[in-house]
Design a protein around this nucleic acid. Structure first.
Lengths: 165, 165
DNA sequence: ATATATGCAAAGGGTTTGCACTCCC
DNA sequence: GGGAGTGCAAACCCTTTGCATATAT
């Protein structure tokens, strides 16, 4: 848990102007992991009253650009999700049943955790790793297993569009 | 290079109906790697005459669902890209300068090439790995280097919107 | 005082949907 | 013949953009 004063200090220290929407957005993101933009907007409004959607987008951009927040894109047409930048270099599991996202420590634990093999003439700045599959709950309850493995891992599935029930 | 007859046979064998848009789309995707949807549409039309955009979307969905084609999503708001499913389990480098995409063999060479560490209760079906950075050409020519490493790998950068020049 | 954030409204862009028509099997 | 594929048009959804106003430093 981070206090409001600490968040203000964090913003100031990063060189960002301190505004109510920014402080509150930062607080919300640090509390609810992997929240979507409109979830965040709703939560911010609960605490501050009216704040425009565009303001939230602006704040999230600023926080992302400043490196205080990390933006996740779990599906091309889904809403972006955000989490606090902890610099612990973790990756994500996304369940195609319930849409839930879980953190998973990096396989190699260090950054860069994955190097594109050998002498490629390419400067890697970011390695994004996303594991798609089925969480234990969904595996137990549902009929999702039919797609379980006709295709090998690292093949993309057709786009899914399930929403959390 | 794959002949037209082979492509028809491939479709039939997969249980898909054989139509001109499907055969041609498959041919186009197998020739131009990582093409975007509208690039594919344009190329298909060059060979077949008028084909609706929605037909192309439908074909690409069908081919993806059947596992003949692999869909790449290199940025949440960018167009999807497609490549032939070669089952060789490779990953991708994407240059933030020119937008070009290069294949890179899997770091571990096998599928699943990456396992979320140890005893997580999660069935991994797909591991998507995307390396973002700068290719040799862009590194040499441009002013992109300013962002080179204030943030450690595996941190997302703010969304980029550069288009190929 | 001044550059920066926010509010409001509208556009943007890739993708999807609904329905009639046409084609493959 | 019958069901899937295609064409056409319009809707969708998240996100971005433009400009006036309010705010932080």
């Amino acid at each position: 848990m981070t206090t409001d004063a600490e968040l203000r200090e964090l913003l100031r220290h990063t060189g960002l102007r301190v505004t109510a929407p920014r402080v509150t957005t930062l607080a919300v993101v640090s509390e609810r992991h992997h929240a979507e933009t409109d979830e965040i907007a709703e939560a911010v409004r609960e605490r501050l009253g009216s704040v425009s959607t565009q303001a939230i987008y602006g704040v999230l951009h600023a926080l992302t650009a400043a490196g205080l927040v990390r933006r996740l894109e779990t599906g091309a047409r889904d809403a972006a999700r955000y989490e606090i930048q902890r610099h612990d270099n973790h990756h994500h599991l996304v369940c195609r049943g319930c849409g839930r996202i879980e953190d998973v420590p990096c396989v190699r634990g260090q950054s860069p955790c994955l190097e594109p093999s050998d002498a490629l003439d390419f400067t890697v700045e970011v390695a994004e790793v996303l594991f798609r599959g089925v969480c234990s709950e969904c595996r137990a309850t549902s009929v999702l297993m039919q797609t379980s493995s006709p295709m090998p891992p690292s093949s993309n599935q057709p786009p899914l569009k399930e929403k959390k029930p």
